Structures are given as structure tokens and as C-alpha cells.
Computed example of a mutant assay.
Amino acid sequence: MSLPDMSSHGHDSMDECVQALSQVHAFLHHELLEADATVIRHHLHACERCMENFEIESTISEMIQRCQPTSSAPSTLAARIHTLRISRRG
């Protein structure tokens, strides 16, 4: 992912864009804390160039997800993992 051209950009600092773009994938996959996601969301709404980059990354992620078959773990494996998680807590 390339950084936006800041020559005609409306922000005072490129740091906001660098921070936002460095977290785009985590934001797309709902892996950020809500407070961090809110900061990214606000930046994307205010910054046209970053929003363009976000839309491109979003489209690519959607295309990749469509190409991957959906599968889940066998119920026996899920039960074993659940049992291991309980035994480690105790």
C-alpha cells in the first residue's frame, strides 16, 4: 500500500495519514479497540486520499474473502480446544 501524496492534502501533519493507513487492515477486520477504530473512522471521513486507499484495500479484502471457501473446525476439534482452554485457566 502506498502512502498518499501530501502535496495537495488538507491535513497539517502527514502523521495522521501514516497512522491511519498503517492500521487499515486491522480496521477492516475489526481487530482494533473501539476507541482506535473511531479515530481511524473519523480520519477516513475527513481525508479523501486515505478514504480512497481504504476503499481499494476493502475491495481487495472482499475479493480475497470471496475466493476462499468457508470452512469450520470439526466439532471434535472445537471441543478439545474448549477443554484445553478450561484446563489452563484452572
Rank of each mutant, 00 (worst) to 15 (best):
Glu34Met: 09
Leu32Tyr: 04
Cys67Pro: 07
Val24His: 06
Leu3Gly: 04
Phe54Thr: 02
His11Ile: 09
Leu84Glu: 14
Leu21Gln: 06
His45Pro: 04
Met63Arg: 13
Ser8Tyr: 03
Ser7Met: 01
Asp36Pro: 11
Ser8Pro: 03
Leu21Thr: 02
Ala79Ser: 11
Ser22Glu: 09
His43Trp: 10
Ser61His: 02
His30Cys: 09
Leu77Glu: 15
Arg88Met: 10
Arg88Thr: 11
Cys47Arg: 09
Ser72Leu: 13
His42Arg: 15
Ser22Cys: 09
Met6Ser: 04
Gln68His: 10
Ser2Ile: 04
Glu52Ile: 08
Ser71Gly: 12
Arg88Ile: 12
Ile86Gly: 12
His11Ala: 12
Ser22Pro: 13
His29Val: 01
His43Arg: 08
Gln23Arg: 03
Met6Leu: 02
Gly90Cys: 14
Met1Lys: 02
Thr83Trp: 14
Arg85Asp: 12
Asp12Pro: 07
Met14Asp: 10
Arg88Trp: 13
Glu52Tyr: 10
Ser58Cys: 07
His9Trp: 00
Ala26Cys: 11
Ser58Lys: 07
Arg89Ala: 13
Leu33Lys: 07
Glu48Ile: 04
Met1Thr: 06
Thr59Gln: 06
Arg80Asn: 12
Ala73Gly: 12
Val18Asp: 01
Ile64His: 01
Ala26Ile: 00
Val18Ala: 03
Ile40Thr: 13
Gln23Thr: 02
Phe27Leu: 01
His82Lys: 14
Cys50Val: 05
Leu77Thr: 04
Ile56Thr: 03
Glu57Ser: 06
Met6Gly: 01
Ala20Tyr: 06
Leu28Met: 08
Ala78Met: 14
Arg85Cys: 10
His42Lys: 13
Leu77Cys: 14
His82Ala: 15
Ala46His: 10
Thr76Trp: 15
Arg85Lys: 10
Cys50Ser: 01
His30Ile: 05
Asp15Asn: 13
Leu77Gly: 05
His42Cys: 03
Pro4Gln: 02
Phe27Gly: 00
His25Pro: 08
Ser61Leu: 07
Ser72Pro: 01
Cys50Leu: 06
Ala37Ile: 05
Ala46Val: 04
Ile56Gly: 07
His42Phe: 04
Gln68Glu: 07
Met14Lys: 15
Ile64Glu: 02
Gly90Val: 02
Ser61Asp: 03
Phe27Val: 00
Thr70Tyr: 11
Cys67Trp: 02
Val24Gly: 06
Pro4Phe: 05
Arg49Glu: 09
Cys50Thr: 00
Leu21Lys: 03
Glu34Ile: 01
Ala79Tyr: 14
Asp15Met: 14
His9Pro: 06
Ala20Thr: 12
Thr76Ser: 15
Thr38Gln: 15
Gln65Ser: 11
Gln65Glu: 09
Val39Ala: 13
Asp5Thr: 07
Ser2Val: 05
Asp36Ser: 06
Leu44Pro: 12
Leu77Arg: 07
